[in-house]
């Protein structure tokens, strides 16, 4: 592999340019900042969350270093379900699985807050550049988009057999308002009737 490494030389002035935007390679490109090398996004679909990593060319993520956990109250997130990765051999860590280009993972989701909080998840991942640079583990909190998504394929963990996420619809809300009005009406009627009975009794 051709070394496409970057050297960051101190400029002739007292201060140099930002370190990882400066490359001296023929291409003039340095290494990408981690958020450009690995772009993570998430989407809630029914009772699961899908996390999508887009991985820049020349970069990869380690399968064993990807994690998910709940970050909002009353939320339970199952383990991250990842597809098989490409096997590489590491002298120190043995066989490792990595992902290049893109990987989509899923995890079951269970909410018990009746929609009172936005879904918030924390993901951890770690990757490297093939040119010989590794980024420290990256931890991000994401608010997944809630969007209708096609039914899931493949197995889900046991935790997925939990209550699905059902955000209330507009119909639900109108029903609630109607129920409240009816309840007040009934209470009023009962109050009037009790006052009437009291008068007859006297």
């Amino acid at each position: 592999m051709t070394a496409t490494l970057c050297a960051f030389l101190v400029s002739t002035s007292a201060l140099a340019s930002p370190w990882w935007l400066r490359g001296t390679g023929a291409s003039g490109d340095g290494f990408l900042p981690p958020d450009q090398a690995f772009r993570a996004s998430a989407q809630v679909a029914g009772s699961e969350v899908r996390v999508d990593w887009e991985i820049a060319d020349g970069y990869y993520l380690y399968r064993s270093r990807m994690r998910i956990e709940a970050a909002s109250p009353d939320l339970e997130v199952g383990p991250l379900l990842l597809p098989a990765g490409e096997e590489v051999h590491d002298q120190y860590f043995g066989t490792q699985e990595i992902y290049r280009h893109r990987v989509v993972a899923r995890a079951s989701l269970r909410r018990s807050d009746f929609g009172a909080h936005p879904v918030e998840i924390k993901i951890t991942y770690q990757g490297c550049a093939e040119a010989g640079l590794c980024y420290p583990p990256i931890v991000k909190v994401l608010f997944p988009d809630e969007a209708p998504v096609a039914p899931t394929k493949g197995p889900l963990p046991a935790a997925s057999a939990t209550a699905p996420l059902h955000p209330p619809t507009a119909t639900d809300e109108w029903f609630a308002i109607g129920a409240g009005l009816v309840a007040f009406l009934l209470a009023g009627l009962l109050a009037r009737r009790s006052r009437g009975s009291a008068r007859i009794g006297s």
């Binding site: 958020d35 993570a40 996004s41 998430a42 807050d113 009746f114 929609g115 009172a116 909080h117 936005p118 879904v119 918030e120 924390k122 420290p136 583990p137 990256i138 931890v139 991000k140 909190v141 994401l142 608010f143 988009d145 809630e146 955000p167 209330p168 809300e173 609630a176 308002i177 129920a179 409240g180």
Partner: peptide, 22 residues
Amino acid sequence: FALRGAGVHRAAPPAAHPMAVP
């Protein structure tokens, strides 16, 4: 129901909120 509705309406945060390693 009012609280529940408020929860639904609040559920429109930014798509991603970056957080550095604690």
